[in-house]
């Protein structure tokens, strides 16, 4: 089934929805960093996520696999789709009735991929080094401080904000599109996906600006 166009669409949708679940979980933890408790809740949740064996050795590899499947399949499908029209139109209407977000998923996707590489370099790599390479002692109070330090640099905040705007556009089409790919049309899909695409990225932008200020 996965060799067919619909099968690949299904896998794309499934991995996308999995990443949406992860994004929601990530947001719920990050938003606690703006709570007026000097990072107590944020530290506790981060420490749990960073040291729980199931999260570290089951969910984390699954997440990395999900990211790799989504991005590699997205790039592969884009190349395949480009090949399906060998001669381009001389004149083509700008949108042909389709939104910018839906026509440029590869652009928003590649921006998000670049952002993820930077994000991994910023947070994930130092964390892995701290725990598994340098074998530092457990310090359950360091996470909030590390977060605040990272967001003191303006260029990083700007890159985060731009990336999350592109993520919003990606989600604006991707969420509802994944439902369509899985054959689901009932319910307020458009409303839910639009709300999600606006609220979650706006929340992440708010967190970045909050810590910068």
């Amino acid at each position: 089934m996965l060799k067919s166009s619909i099968g690949r669409k299904f896998l794309m949708a499934l991995s996308g929805l999995f990443l949406i679940v992860f994004l929601t979980q990530h947001f719920i933890i990050n938003i606690t960093s703006v709570f007026p408790d000097d990072g107590k809740t944020f530290n506790a949740l981060s420490h749990f996520m960073g040291n729980n064996l199931i999260v570290q050795f089951v969910l984390q590899p699954v997440l990395i696999l999900g990211v790799m499947v989504h991005f590699s399949l997205g790039i592969y499908l884009e190349i395949q789709n480009q090949r399906s029209r060998q001669v381009s139109y001389v004149k083509r209407s700008i949108n042909n009735g389709a939104s910018w977000a839906s026509r440029n998923m590869i652009i928003s996707g590649l921006v998000i991929l670049s952002f993820l590489i930077m994000h991994f370099y910023d947070f994930w790599v130092p964390e892995i080094m701290y725990k598994y390479v340098d074998h530092n002692p457990l310090d359950e109070h360091r996470y909030f401080h590390e977060l605040q330090v990272k967001f003191q640099e303006l260029f990083r905040v700007v890159i985060y904000c731009v990336s999350f705007i592109l993520l919003a556009l990606h989600l604006l089409h991707g969420f509802s599109s994944s439902m369509q790919s899985m054959g689901i049309t009932k319910g307020p899909i458009k409303l839910v996906s639009t709300l999600f695409a606006v609220i979650i990225p706006a929340g992440f932008i708010f967190i970045a600006i909050f810590h910068y200020i």
């Binding site: 509802s176 790919s181 049309t185």
Partner: peptide
Amino acid sequence: FGACTNTGACEAQCPKEISIKNIARMN
């Protein structure tokens, strides 16, 4: 043919205004 990415351009330009809900049904 290429794979559908649910942009909706087909529905917008179909002379018979066939809905892309049909694609969800096919999926």
